[in-house]
């Protein structure tokens, strides 16, 4: 199913169209479940997270149009954030990361601007590899494993502030690498 079709389905879901919701589930649940499973490493927890994600999709579909994201980015971001919140809930002193994207203000980014971002995204893997190895691993660890600065500092055996500075520099390099032609 292409981007346009998924976008149309989300638009119909925003009008409370249950048939469209069912079709959207059929088209995207395997990918979303894969993402939940990757984050949570547990089938039943991943199934719950996927279900919660689709509940959010049903309730917030009307917000999709204004946020400017590509439809799969929006759906995957919801699944990833929902999974990470669930993962962190099992850890001490957790804090929900919530789902930026559900509450995003109507973005000033035009379609071209976001198309640029999406185009850059294709360079992500190469750029992550270009980063000093452990910085790339730290970004992946934050995104896919829900690691906080404190978790990362522990994992890489560096002080918290060092970790913060380090990862921020990594993000700046990443941005530069990705925007390179």
């Amino acid at each position: 199913m292409d981007r346009q079709e998924i976008e149309t389905l989300i638009g119909r879901v925003a009008m409370n169209d249950r048939a469209a919701f069912s079709a959207l589930y059929d088209a995207t649940s395997a990918k979303l479940f894969g993402v939940c499973l990757r984050v949570l490493h547990n089938r039943s927890a991943a199934e719950d997270a996927m279900q919660d994600s689709f509940v959010k999709v049903w309730k917030h579909a009307s917000r999709y149009q204004s946020n400017g994201l590509s439809p799969m980015t929006w759906l995957i971001t919801i699944a990833r954030n929902t999974s990470i919140d669930r993962l962190r809930a099992t850890r001490k002193g957790h804090m929900d990361i919530d789902t930026p994207g559900l509450e995003l203000a109507a973005s000033t980014a035009g379609p071209e601007q976001l198309a640029v971002a999406a185009g850059e995204a294709r360079r992500l893997t190469g750029c992550l590899d270009e980063l000093a190895e452990d910085r790339g691993a730290a970004v992946r660890g934050a995104y896919l494993d829900g690691h906080s600065y404190a978790d990362l500092a522990e994992r890489f055996s560096v002080p918290l502030n060092t970790m913060r500075t380090w990862l921020r520099r990594g993000l700046i390099s990443l941005r530069e690498c990705m925007s390179r032609e």
């Binding site: 649940s29 199934e47 994207g101 000033t108 976001l114 995204a121």
Partner: peptide, 28 residues
Amino acid sequence: AALVAGWQERFVPMTDAIAPVNPRRRAK
């Protein structure tokens, strides 16, 4: 919000390599 959306687009390819897995039918 535009900056946030931009990063969401940029990071999402980290999930490209994740294979789709069919959930059980009863999940739906």
